[in-house]
Structures are given as structure tokens and as C-alpha cells.
Design a protein around this nucleic acid. Sequence first.
DNA 1: TATTGTTATACTCTATAACTATA
DNA 2: TATAGTTATAGAGTATAACAATA
Lengths: 140, 140
Amino acid sequence: MNDDPAELAVEFNRRLREVVLLVRQATTGLPLTAQQLSVLGSLESGPRRMSDLAAEHGVRQPTMTVQVNRLEEAGLVSRGRDADDARVVTVALTDEGCRDLAHGRRARTAFLAERFAALTPDERAAIAAALPAIGRLRAP
Amino acid sequence: MNDDPAELAVEFNRRLREVVLLVRQATTGLPLTAQQLSVLGSLESGPRRMSDLAAEHGVRQPTMTVQVNRLEEAGLVSRGRDADDARVVTVALTDEGCRDLAHGRRARTAFLAERFAALTPDERAAIAAALPAIGRLRAP
DNA sequence: TATTGTTATACTCTATAACTATA
DNA sequence: TATAGTTATAGAGTATAACAATA
């Protein structure tokens, strides 16, 4: 087997695009967008600062301000102030946000689960075996 | 190893989100957006109809009209009419579009190639072995 | 002066609804 | 009447630049 990182990158990029398109086609019309769900997911482990959220999601601060504004208007998150540093805004999941996060995740995952169920056990095993390596792309 | 499609879907979805974020962070500021590059890529094998392009990219016709308008203004694609059916608009890559496609792809792929180069040969092999199965998610 | 966050403005991507032209 | 495409309008997501408040 050829072990050229550049060729692998091209192939991987192509598959990635296919899957992203597939998921998008299957999840249009859901009440929460992928980004909103993603932000809510970051808050699952506890409140976070605006700047941390922005960094984690690879967006600028004003972008996160907009997203948090909308989530706050929808009642899914709440803003708070840091006790030690009055400049810092913290964002926390509300009970309703917690519920919607669970629902949204289920809806998105259900589609993928169906597709995985249609694969052979060998195919599923191949994908499962690759996930740790894919995760290592983040911190090489 | 656990072979539950639902669990695999959750894990896969998580990795997918990570990689998408990673690529986005690495490719902001490039002259061509991911969608523009994607549309140009569809035209590489020859001219296509508007409706085919829209279907392939999982978007509505008006969305594709907008994207093609911009690409046409930028000189990267050209519109044509079908000889047999006067309603049909065909879209073709221009020479400049062909060049920009190659450059854009290289820029995007170069980032991934670096990350792949930092993995071990075993990790690359695991990912390469999973790509066919991932491709099969499209047509289960 | 540096950091945290917001506001203002603009561009891309997307959708639905209404329209034109052709079959 | 049905199909291919466009125009009009709206909303989400993103960015940069300019600003306020706090450290």
C-alpha cells in the first residue's frame, strides 16, 4: 500500500467532503443548526467564557457574541459575570438548552447510525479502528 | 470490540466535527471558499446543468444560481445553453477556473498532508483502510 | 497599555416564494 | 400543466474595524 501523506490527504479530503454533504442534506430543517448544537455541546461540561468558546470553535469573538445572543434569546443559554474579573462573561446551559441539546444530537446521530447499520461488520470495524488516528490529526 | 452502529455514529460524528473545525481554522482567508472550490471541482470532468450541480451539492436551485453568478463574475466559469432543450443552462470551467481550482485544492490539501505526515505509518494505514467504508456511507 | 466583550457593517451561503421561458 | 432557471427577500454564519469597560 502506498503511504504518501499527500495522496492520503487528497483522498481523505474527498471523503470528508462527501460525508459533510451527506450529513447536511440529511439534517436541513432541524430546529437547531449544526453550529448552535456545537456551541451547546461545549457547555455540557460546565459554563465557559466567551473567548474560550470562540477559540474552541475557531471563530472570532464577535461571531460568538452573535451566536450566544441568539441562543440566549431562545432561552437555551444564560450569560453570567465572573466574580474575579468583571470583564469576563460566562455562558451556561439552561435546563431547556440541555434538553434541546440531547434532542438535537439524537436527531443528527440517528441518521448516521442508520447508515452505519447498513455497512458490514468489517466496514464498521475499519472505521472504528481509524477514529483514534483521525483524532490525532488535531494534535500531531 | 463493540459493534453498535449507534455508538459508532456518535464517535464518528464527534471526530467529524473536530476535523471540520480543524480544516476550517486552517483555511480561513483563502481566496476561494470551500463551497466555491467544491462547485469548481464538480465541473472538472466537464460541463454540468444547474439542476445537476444543485442536486450534487445538496442545495436548492436558487442557491446554485447565486454561486454560479459569483463564479461567473470572477471569470472562473461560463454559462451555456443546451442545444436540445432551451430551458437548460450548462456551466463550464474556464481556463482561469481550472487554474484556481488546482491552486485552491493544493492550499487546502497541503494543510491536511502536513498533519498526515506527522502521524505514524500505522495510523495512516488505519485511516487509508477506513476510507472505502466511509465512502460506502453515501450508498448503503 | 492590554484584555474582554460588544456594536456596526459587510459578505457568503442558504432557504422559500413568486416569476419567466420553454416543453 | 410541468420543468429549468432566475429574481426577490430573509436568516444564519462569518469577518474586520471601532468602541466601551476593566485590568
